[in-house]
Every structure is written in C-alpha cells, then in structure tokens.
Write a protein that binds this DNA or RNA. Structure first.
Lengths: 185, 185
DNA sequence: AGGTTCATGTAACCCGTTACATGATTTC
DNA sequence: GAAATCATGTAACGGGTTACATGAACCT
C-alpha cells in the first residue's frame, strides 16, 4: 500500500470542503488557480479510485431528476486523519528544494482542518527553515560566481529570489495571524 | 520516439559545457543548486541511455591508469540542435503555470549555447508573458476572496507574489543585458 | 582487513500523460 | 438534428522513485 500522491491530497482537501464528483474536481483544476494540477480524467478518476481503495474517501451515486447521475465523493474519518497528519508533519530542507508546491497545498487547507493556531505554527516553521536555507544557498554559489556564464548566474539568482519572496510572504502571513489572535484576545 | 524529458535537457545542457560521466552528473545534482533534479542512478543512467538511443549524445569508455574506467558522454550535433530548438521555442501561458522550472533551465544555459542576444529576447518574452498573466490571476481570485478561508487566500497570494518576484527578476536581468550591450557598443 | 569513495547499472512499481470511448442532457 | 456540455471511465506508454547489486581503487 503506497503513499498518497500530491494529487491525492489535493483531491482530499477539496472533498473536505464539501462532497464533490470527479467532474466537479476536474472543473476546479481547469478554472481556478489550482490549475497547476492536471484536469485530465486519466489522472483524476484513477486517483479517486485509489483513495477509495485505501479507505480515505467513500462514494455513492447521486440520482438526480433530469440531470445525469453522478458519483459523489466524501472523505472518511481515516481520510481526514491522514490529511491532517500530512499537513502537520515536519518541514524538511528537501521540501523546500523539491516540493514547495506540496508545502503550499498543505497550508492552503489548514484553517479549515486544523485551525489558525496550527496554520501559524506551520508558517513559523516554514519561515525558520527558509531563513536558514537561503544563506546556505548564497554561500554555496558565491565562490562559483566568477567562472559562470551570466545566464547561469542569473538563473540561480532567480531561485534565491524566489525563496526570499516566499520568506517575505511567510512573515507577512505570520503577522496577519498574530494580529488576528490579538484582536480576539 | 518520445520527447526528451526535463531531466534529459538538464543532462544535455551540462554535457554541452564539457564531456562528463554519469557519476559526474550525479554529483552535480547532489552538490550544487541543481539539486532540484534527482541524483538517483535509476533516473540518470536510463536517461543517458535514452539520449544516446535518440542520437543526442555519444559515449565512449575512458580508460585511466589507476582509476576505474568510466563512460564519458558528449552531445552530438543533433543533440546541440535539439537543445537550441527547445531553448528557443515560444513561451506559453502553460509554461508559466506548470513548468517554471523548465523555463529557468532553458535560460540557464543560454549564454553558452545561443548567446546573450537570444538570452535577452527570452527574458523579454518571459517578462511580457508574466506581465499579462499576473493581472489575470488577480482578477480571477479577487471576487472569490470574500468567502475563502484565510490560509487558502494566503496560499493563492503566495503564488501571485512568486510570479511578481519572477517578473522583477526578469526586468533586472533585462537591464543587466542591456547595460552590457551598450557597454560593448 | 574493512570502510569509503568511485562508478555503473538493473528491476519492480507507481503514477501522470495522452488518447480514445461512451452516453445522457441541454441548447440552438 | 447537431453541437456543446455534463459525466465517467479505460488503456498504452513512459519516466521517475526506490531499492538492490556489483565491483574497483583508495585510505587507514
């Protein structure tokens, strides 16, 4: 029994908001900023089937007068649990390097699942990891800079600036959550 | 005969700089900022074999007194040609959404292959595409903002800010190339 | 003698891509 | 009655991940 893929978690997260059909999910992946995910039926329907086989979602056919019948999916309690576990696992250096998208997806549904307190914790962990990673990137490429072609140097610089932008975003987001907390207190 | 994968192009680009062995390439993927690529032998050696089968690289075994013999790869003229074609193809909206990494990889080797003039053209095209994409993202999520949980909204915002950072980077890079051009004139 | 680094591979597995297929319902 | 939209699937293919395997040279 294998791990759930990122697509699987994206589907789970959307189903946590409300029950949806495969077609609903596809539409989200074509029409909203979640279009980084593929809206191809060849990806989504098998992914839903796997989620069901693993007991993370349950589905039943919804009969509707007039309209075509469709299969509605909703997460099971095991699905919710696995989703939360995935969201709260530690942030590793490697997540920063290869799985930034996954980190953002984990965060995107946090308020709805584990609440703003945990969202804030996540952001702090993310900011901490970024703050330690960025300087290490700089020192790693600093010495090389001399004998590198301009475009190569700039490409690396773009990566670093991407991380710096992410750190600025995380810090602002932290401030937003903290203001909200104080406001409630 | 299928298309070359991103990993394939990364390998080709590095081989364009100088002949290297599979092991050399692996080390680059473990030790440099190119670590977004997998350094697993199960990815690299098959990828090299495919490149060779497609006639994009040639290899020969290098015998070395004392040291273990190793297989050195170098691009063929067909390989160079395909690489340049890949680098110069049009920048699509979809590249921005799903393949930013690939765009950066295309740019990273440009000075060495097709020269600074083309690099500048690439940057201008990229900046243009970004400048048209970012507002469309903003207007797409603007209306939704009301009925979205905070973490979801922030996650989207992070995506947009990532694109904005990329645009700032591109504009600075354009300025660098243009200064260099004037300096030479 | 034993551990590390150099060096190259293979095999199973999984998932995403692409393309194809089907059929109901709504709209013109 | 034809086209578009709703809705759900399957099948071939390819490439990346993970894990395993091997063996030479070097260092201690």
């Amino acid at each position: 029994m294998n791990e759930t893929s990122i697509l699987g978690y994206a589907l789970l997260g959307l189903l946590l908001q409300k029950p949806r059909s495969g077609y609903d999910l596809r539409k989200i992946f074509t029409a909203t900023p979640m279009r980084t995910f593929s809206d191809s039926p060849g990806a989504i329907y098998p992914a839903l089937r796997r989620l069901e086989e693993r007991g993370l979602v349950r589905s039943h056919v919804q009969e509707r007068s007039g309209l075509r019948r469709r299969r509605l999916f909703r997460p099971t309690s095991a699905g919710v649990a696995e989703f939360k576990t995935w969201q709260t696992k530690a942030i590793l250096r490697d997540d920063l390097i290869r799985r930034t998208d996954e980190l953002m997806l984990r965060f995107a549904f946090m308020d709805e699942t584990i609440g703003p307190k945990k969202s804030l914790e996540f952001l702090k962990a993310l900011a901490g990891e970024l703050a330690s990673y960025i300087p290490s990137l700089r020192t790693c490429l600093g010495p090389r800079e001399g004998h590198m072609p301009l475009s190569g140097r700039l490409a690396l610089e773009s990566g670093i600036q991407g991380y710096e932008a992410l750190l600025r975003w995380a810090r602002k987001a932290i401030a937003v959550y903290e203001r909200k907390e104080k406001g409630r207190a």
